[in-house]
Nucleic acid binder design. Sequence first.
DNA 1: AACCGTTATTCCTAGACAAACATAACGCTA
DNA 2: TAGCGTTATGTTTGTCTAGGAATAACGGTT
Lengths: 113, 113
Amino acid sequence: MSNYKIKSRIWIELGDNVLVGEGRVKLLKAIEAEGSLSKAAKVIGMSYKKAWTLVDTVNKTAKEAVVTKTVGGQKGGGTVITPYGKRLIEAFETINKNCWIFLDQQLKELNGI
Amino acid sequence: MSNYKIKSRIWIELGDNVLVGEGRVKLLKAIEAEGSLSKAAKVIGMSYKKAWTLVDTVNKTAKEAVVTKTVGGQKGGGTVITPYGKRLIEAFETINKNCWIFLDQQLKELNGI
DNA sequence: AACCGTTATTCCTAGACAAACATAACGCTA
DNA sequence: TAGCGTTATGTTTGTCTAGGAATAACGGTT
């Protein structure tokens, strides 16, 4: 009986750049909930600078815009996820979960180790 | 048509320790080929110390010994992979390849993104 | 014009991680 | 006993990156 556990990290690339991985998706979901990049970063315990850099590369790498940002105004501005971004988040999360299930099955099949 | 690429890293844990991942398996295969930890480290461009630490944790984490080491003697000693270690390497590599195939399929199914 | 909360960007510091270096111990051979 | 190549381990040096502080710009409201 094996109590080995199998773990994974997956990410999607385009060219040489990373589009989304677990960290980016976590950030994007926080943005979706908060409507603000700075608030999202604070909520997930990430520095604003790092969050900004991640979102910037995500937006530049993706084929369509993932977030739209506004600066100034009554609320100071904000960041919202585009419909494309929402599809991207959902796609990543479903693939990720499916991957976990698949890997658990794979390890189970080799219960000799 | 999507030219997004999906990538992954998988590893096997027991408790809080990592047993094997891509780096460790690469090292173990080099040991298998060289019969020596120091030569294996040199071949794959890894420092001896890091290689030693990795092999040490692998051996302490696994349920059975993965390598056996000898010190001194005509050839100075050496490190060889046990039969269990060979099964472990093969198991990891097959799961890893299967994971790649699985993920490519998953991404293909969502060719809307 | 003054204020506010946001995005956007630079600079500096601190800590983690990796590489390099040095050295000891081992056991066989000659 | 001296030499050899290996395992085993500590120490130092260097590099890279995360993090914080500071500042500017923006565009609404009052």
